[in-house]
């Protein structure tokens, strides 16, 4: 009889234990600390996967940073190239007459009271100035370009189809003393003008401005050859 009681008590104890264990396990699962239950080999596989993923992500970071670096560098380079191209455009524009120019230079006033000056003489003046390093020239209201032409007769000179009025005003940018010396050479253009009863007044200035422009011309036949 006593043994039966003992067995019954054991049944009760086991059932109590089962209840406690059940609740404990459910609670633990609910907490979600599943890593704690995992077997070492599973954890190793998990860790391995995580490490591989970390390595892949790190590689991606490095690649992206490299790409960023490269793009930034090429951006700098193309910005510098653009700036240089812009400066060249401006410099060429001054020579071609498509942009306004300012700088030291001369103001010439050529008067021709007897109307004997011919287009060739004015062309000589221009050549002489160019030879002395003139960079931008304006005669009357015309900007001189590479295709400028003096036409007409003595006293009736046309420049690029525009009739010049007396006295001929020449504004030229370049080194003032050099150009002044060039036109004043004995037997030079000033002598030639004075032989035809004309008169040249040359004034050196630290700053003259040429605002008249030539329209830019697209070459019809020539193309850059590279």
């Amino acid at each position: 009889m006593g043994q039966k009681k003992l067995v019954n008590a054991l049944v009760a104890v086991l059932c109590v234990l089962l209840g406690v264990a059940l609740v404990t396990q459910v609670r633990r699962t609910e907490v979600g600390d599943t890593l704690a239950d995992q077997r070492p080999q599973d954890l190793v596989v998990l860790l391995d996967g995580l490490q591989r993923r970390e390595a892949a992500l790190r590689k991606e970071i490095t690649d992206s940073e490299d790409a960023l670096h490269r793009l930034r560098e090429s951006g700098d380079r193309s910005a510098a190239a653009l700036e240089e191209a812009r400066q060249r455009t401006v410099a060429l524009g001054v020579l071609a007459g498509t942009v306004p120019a300012a700088g030291p230079g001369l103001r010439l006033t050529i008067s021709d009271p007897s109307g004997q000056l011919n287009p060739e003489l004015l062309l000589n003046v221009l050549q002489e100035l160019r030879g002395a390093g003139a960079e931008a020239v304006q005669i009357g209201s015309v900007r001189i370009g590479v295709d400028s032409a003096f036409t007409g007769d003595s006293g009736q000179i046309t420049l690029d189809g525009v009739k010049l009025t007396q006295p001929y005003q020449v504004v030229v940018i370049g080194d003032p003393p050099t150009m002044d010396a060039a036109i004043n050479i004995p037997g030079g253009v000033i002598d030639a003008v004075e032989r035809k009863n004309g008169k040249v007044v040359s004034k050196q200035e630290q700053r003259v401005e040429i605002t008249v422009l030539r329209p830019p011309r697209e070459p019809r036949f020539a193309k850059p050859a590279n």
Binding site: N8, V11, A12, C15, V20
Partner: peptide, 16 residues
């Protein structure tokens, strides 16, 4: 007895 004991165990687990 077993059913009661099981219930007691569950309650114990919840409380403790």
């Amino acid at each position: 007895i077993a059913v009661i004991a099981l219930a007691v165990g569950i309650v114990l687990g919840l409380v403790l």
